[in-house]
Design a binder for these strands. Structure first.
Lengths: 193, 193
DNA sequence: GTTTATGTTGATTGATGAGTCAATAAACTT
DNA sequence: AAGTTTATTGACTCATCAATCAACATAAAC
């Protein structure tokens, strides 16, 4: 059975399993064995590739950030003008890549992780800066100096919607969340359309 | 040393120590021994009074909710008219009782707890319903049917600000957070003053 | 002043889980 | 074909903790 070149496959499987497992149980209290089992291997192998549980968690966080980044880039590519760009950012935040149940559940738990692990905190701040900068770029040309405050508020609103999504069970409704935020943004801008 | 009538004192000390400990370490991964030590007793005594770690956590959650409730009631008492009431609700959310570092830190972790414990989930939904209803009561007379959406958005924004507060270290600035939310609310309403 | 209820803890148990290691096997290298 | 690197796991170690218990101490009740 043993083939060569397994490393990237195993790593990817573990990352995916980690997100699922954290999302499912709703806590960081997942064992390496559980994760490994879900990924179809022994816990020893998980340690072999990642060295520690901590590293597994961080890889999972990085993966979610990568997903989110890709989603934003994709949405922005087809956007023209500040308003369109804003809309794209909001839509991407609640796109199917980031706003799925397990992913959002894992995300909340990574906030907790960030309180104790420096690298996790760093990753989280990367996300926050990126979101803030994306919002600002769209808002500045439209509302000038007030952009700062609005971006802060809307950023917090997005984070809050993630939390609420995780809490209430069932399938997440990204479209509803996006339109809620978009409505607020529209009113914050000139009330157009 | 042993006197009679210790129970309420011990319970209160444990609840307080729990909030501090969770806030400090930034996770639910606190041992009963640590909590008990901070509260000045043995872990056996903590179990004697609460029966289990789970019950200790829930008592701490209830206490935070009680604090928050008191803060809101206090602020509302001195408020006249819908706008004043709204302002009171926002101010209370970021008041010194609820928005202190350890309390907010514990709060975030209780969100995590709510994903696995039914009673914690129930408590959290009590908070959410209360916040929503408070906002609605203030908003309905001012903006009618749009109140629903605005309350949802502002509620999420408040939760999001808690998270961000916990993440960024240092002393929390409740006044800044409150004025941010209040600014959004003012714009959502008629833009007055 | 003996019984009873309350307060208190050190020591112990039992479970759980992260990380290590030695051993096995298949694939590449020379 | 001998040697090396990569893949893989079961069994083990070691630490941590929640929960329990037996024992003791003080206060209240009778």
């Amino acid at each position: 059975m043993p083939k060569v070149g397994m490393e990237p496959i195993r790593r990817a499987a573990l990352v995916k399993a980690t997100i699922t497992e954290i999302g499912r149980t709703g806590s960081l209290d997942v064992t390496v064995s559980k994760i490994a089992k879900r990924a179809g291997m022994s816990s020893a192998l998980a340690h072999h590739y990642f060295g520690s549980k901590e590293q597994i968690f961080l890889a999972a966080m990085r993966h979610i950030l990568t997903l989110y980044g890709a989603e934003v880039r994709g949405a922005l590519a087809a956007a023209d003008g500040p308003e369109e760009r804003l809309r794209a950012v909001v839509r991407a935040s609640f796109g199917s890549g980031s706003f799925r149940r397990e992913v959002a559940g894992a995300w909340l738990n990574f906030y907790v992780l960030a309180q104790t692990q420096a690298e996790a905190r760093r990753l989280l701040s990367v996300y926050q800066r990126r979101l803030r900068s994306n919002l600002l770029h769209g808002l500045k040309p439209l509302i000038g100096e007030r952009a700062e405050v609005v971006a802060q508020g809307v950023g917090a609103m997005i984070d809050g919607l993630y939390i609420r999504e995780v809490l209430k069970g069932g399938t997440p409704d990204g479209a509803a969340a996006a339109s809620l935020v978009w409505g607020h943004l529209r009113r914050e801008m000139g009330l157009k359309a």
